[in-house]
Structures are given as C-alpha cells and as structure tokens.
C-alpha cells in the first residue's frame, strides 16, 4: 500500500472545518512520521488559498489549493471527479474525508470513481503491521461496534467528527501549491443550489458538530425555561438540543431533536437536563464522550447511561453550574 495519504479539507465560512483538521492528524498517523510517508491536503473552491495557511501548519507535507469557484457549491460528482484525479496524480493510497454532511456523501462517490474500497463513519483507525487499515465504526445507532478491514490497496475513509484530535499548529509550515483544476471528464447534468435556509438552532455552534451539547427535556416544564440551558451552553460554547417530548410539544423546532428520529450527536460533553432517557433519545447521544445527567427522579433511566449524575431540582442546579463554569473559565 502506498503510504501517500490525501486529506480532503472542507472550507466553511472562510476557514477549514474542525473535522477536516482532525483528519489531518489521522493522515499523519497512518502515513508515518514525515519522511516515511507523505500527507497531502487538498482544498477546493474560492476560499482554498486563504485556508491553506492554517492547514499547512498542521503536520502535513504539502497543501494543494484548487481555487476554482466551480467547487464552491458542493456537488459530490464534481468533487469526486477532481479528488480522484488528484489522487491518481500523487499516487495516493488512502483518502481521508471528514464526516460532515458533504463528506459523508462524498466517500461512496469518490471510492466508486477512484475504484477504491470505502468505509464511512470511522471512529478509530489503526494500521496493522502489514500496513492494512483497520477501522472501528459504531453501527446500529451506536448500540454496537464494527471492525472493518480494508482489503484493497486504495481506500477512501470517512471519519466521524469529534472522534479524533485535531493537531495543534506546529512551527513548521508545509509548502502550499496552487493546483490547476484537474480534468473533470464528462460531468452529468447538475443541480442548482438556489438558496440556504439556516436551521433554527440558536446562535451556538451546529448541533452535530458542537463539542458540548446541552439538551433539555420535559423536566424543563415549558419553552421559556430553555433560557437556563442557553446560559449554560453559552458558558460552555455549546449547542442546544432537545428530547422528542420537547419537540413534539412544540417547545423547540424539530431541528433541535436528538435521538433516533432526530440528530445523532457525539460531542465531548453531553449534558442532559430534565430528560428521562428513553431509548429513543439515548441512541442519538450514547456515543458522546462524557454524559452528565441532571434529573429530579433518581430512577430515571438516563442515570444508567450517564457518567455523572446529579439528582435534584434543575432550576437550582443548572444556574449554579453555569455560574461555576463561568467562574473557572474566568469570565
């Protein structure tokens, strides 16, 4: 297997998305230390030049920037054509893609285009002694884990956001190269993106990407009390989620719902406030790294899946917690 790794870096709002930075760290790890294998990052679209600098400091060997506005709107078919062409050019063995909405869609398409094996939703990745890639991925909404062995010399891997640590900027800077748009071949008729509608998820980070999620359930007693959670999420720089009971009652729009029929989140810290912990909800958050539950009912099933539990009146506990976090964070 070629130890040349290509990492696709996605840009949003003028900067590389964090999940892509996480992929850079994985790329370095499987390519081996600098000198043994190469990690190439590729950025597509108008913003690629300015974002390249950030990427160049994250332990990669080379950054390719394809500053062509044709990539600004995401069309999996266009992206796949370009990345497959670049992968052939640099003789890559592995392509890493962050598991964003775009990234998850890209993996299968790119693998078919590049005639590679594909694994999506990778939460852990290791390299066997013979250089074989072994991926661990949650399946069945996190209720089980699968280990997948890659049997082909080429593989496209989609990485789960928040599962890996993004490398800190290092002193050394890789070379940044403006790369011409590769030959995209014959493209099929494409769609047209005519507008963007922001989700009603408050002002914080996006629910599925946030490092901290504070979710509220029926225990909040009314939509007005979400203010308490907004304060807590604000102190933590987190996003707000909700149980199905809350979205079904119309206290919050459906876009807030965490669970089987809503969003699946896997933040570093998940704080469940006034949520009983029905399985419907739990499958949407069980792969969070640390789970805190605050509930007045000591028998609430949420305490079975949480790491830390506080039995008590959320209307007292949550403000105290917000104050304490503000205090330790010095704000």
């Amino acid at each position: 297997m070629s130890s040349s790794v290509l990492v696709v870096v996605e840009i949003r709002n003028g900067a590389p998305v964090r999940a892509s930075l996480e992929a850079l760290g994985v790329g370095r790890r499987i390519a081996g230390p600098p000198g043994s294998g190469t990690v190439t990052a590729v950025l597509l679209g108008s913003g690629s030049e300015s974002s390249s600098t950030t990427v160049a400091e994250r332990g990669v060997d080379k950054v390719l920037s394809v500053a062509d506005p044709r990539f600004d709107a995401f069309h999996a078919v266009v992206w796949a054509a370009a990345i497959a062409a670049i992968a052939r050019e640099i003789d890559a063995g592995t392509i890493l893609v962050a598991g964003t909405s775009n990234g998850r869609e890209l993996v299968g398409r790119l693998a078919a285009r590049w005639e590679a094996a594909a694994v999506n939703g990778v939460a852990d990745l290791s390299l066997a002694a013979d250089g074989t890639l072994m991926a661990v991925r949650p399946v069945f909404s996190g209720r089980a884990l699968q280990e997948v062995r890659v049997d082909q010399t080429r593989a496209v891997l989609g990485l789960r956001p928040n599962a890996f640590t993004a490398p800190e900027p290092s002193g050394s800077k890789a070379s940044v190269e403006a790369h011409p748009t590769p030959d995209l071949g014959q493209l099929p008729a494409l769609g047209v993106v005519s507008g963007f509608e922001p989700a009603q998820t408050g002002s914080g980070p996006d629910l599925s990407e946030a490092l901290v999620v504070v979710s509220g359930g029926r225990g909040l007693r009314g939509p007005e009390n979400f203010r308490l959670l907004e304060d807590l999420a604000g102190a933590l720089g987190g996003a707000i989620g909700a149980s199905r009971a809350v979205t079904d009652s119309g206290w919050k729009p459906a876009s807030f719902q965490v669970g089987q029929t809503g969003r699946t989140v896997s933040p570093q810290l998940y704080i469940a406030v006034g949520i009983s912990g029905a399985i419907q909800h739990v499958v949407g958050m069980i792969s969070s790294r640390t789970i805190v539950a605050i509930n007045s009912d000591p028998n609430a099933p949420i305490f079975k899946v949480a790491d830390y539990g506080v039995v008590g009146d959320l209307f007292q506990i949550v403000p105290a917690l917000t104050a304490e976090i503000r205090r330790v964070r010095g704000s």
Partner: peptide
Amino acid sequence: EAGLVGPALAE
C-alpha cells in the same frame, strides 16, 4: 449506517 450506496450507485 454506511451511507455509501446512493452516491456510489450514482457514480
């Protein structure tokens, strides 16, 4: 939960 079939089929 692979999410590969649709895009790969389209390609």
